[in-house]
């Protein structure tokens, strides 16, 4: 579904991603873990071109999205993204947050989008917040809304950039529950996270990144039971 070939990214002299090649298959739940500064967020952000790769080719559903001629807005409509800091639009109600993109991109009429928003909000148990503003919500609620907002575009793949890192510990669970439900429905997901429990439970594959490279990857079971790489072992010994 997403094919990454020889992806490199540098900020000035600083090489953040070093020649990464990877393939993400439909229905997979790929969990990317690694220490801070390992390039895992940058890797994720390259997948929908929020970061412009310095080198390499990314293909999504047969389209070479790194080609400058590609209409990137149309590609992004099929890739949902959830951010660490939610990035809800504070100047709009929750309903408007969710319906803005589907309506403006011509995916739905306003009434249809309102209906979809209602259904999605019901699913995450936040229907009564439809007319509230983001600042009136807790962190966990905001992140659930952010997930719903991405889902309203009916994406083929969902990218999560440390979705629980900015949350109070007691709110992590409610967000992870929504993500688990999404996973069970068969959504293709790429998740950058520090939640090892989530990786173990939901992930179909775990990638370990450090120094801009993918050092090791395996099924969660094997990965956590028998890490091969020395760096992976060290990392796991600290976080587990």
């Amino acid at each position: 579904m997403i094919d990454v070939k020889n992806l490199s990214k540098s900020f000035g002299d600083h090489l953040v991603l070093d020649d990464i090649s990877e393939h993400i298959y439909p229905g997979e739940k790929v969990v990317v873990i690694g220490p801070s500064g390992s390039g895992k967020s940058t890797f994720l952000r390259c997948l929908n071109l929020l970061e412009e790769p310095s080198k390499g080719v990314i293909t999504f559903g047969g389209t070479v999205i790194t080609d400058p001629k590609v209409k990137i807005d149309e590609v992004r409509q099929q890739m949902g993204m959830v951010f660490q800091h939610f990035n809800l639009f504070p100047n709009m109600t929750i309903r408007k947050n969710i319906t803005l993109a589907p309506v403006r991109t011509g995916l739905m009429k306003q009434e249809e989008a309102d209906y979809v928003a209602g259904t999605l909000l019901k699913r995450v148990d936040l229907l009564e917040k439809a007319d509230a503003y983001p600042n009136q919500l807790s962190g966990g609620q905001k992140q659930r809304i952010a997930i719903v907002r991405a889902l309203a575009m009916k994406p083929k793949v969902m990218l999560f950039d440390e979705p629980t890192s900015a949350l109070d510990p007691e709110m992590v669970g409610e967000v992870l529950d929504v993500m688990k439900e999404l996973a069970h429905e068969g959504m293709t997901m790429v998740v950058v996270t520090h939640e090892m429990g989530f990786a173990r439970e939901v992930g179909s594959r775990v990638l370990f990144m450090d120094g801009g490279k993918i050092l090791e990857q395996n099924t969660p079971k094997e990965f956590f039971a028998n890490p091969q790489n020395e760096r992976t072992k060290l990392f796991l010994s600290k976080v587990l």
């Binding site: 992004r76 951010f83 403006r104």
Partner: peptide, 9 residues
Amino acid sequence: EAGRSLGLS
């Protein structure tokens, strides 16, 4: 970024 990631121009 949030706006663009949703596919808005």
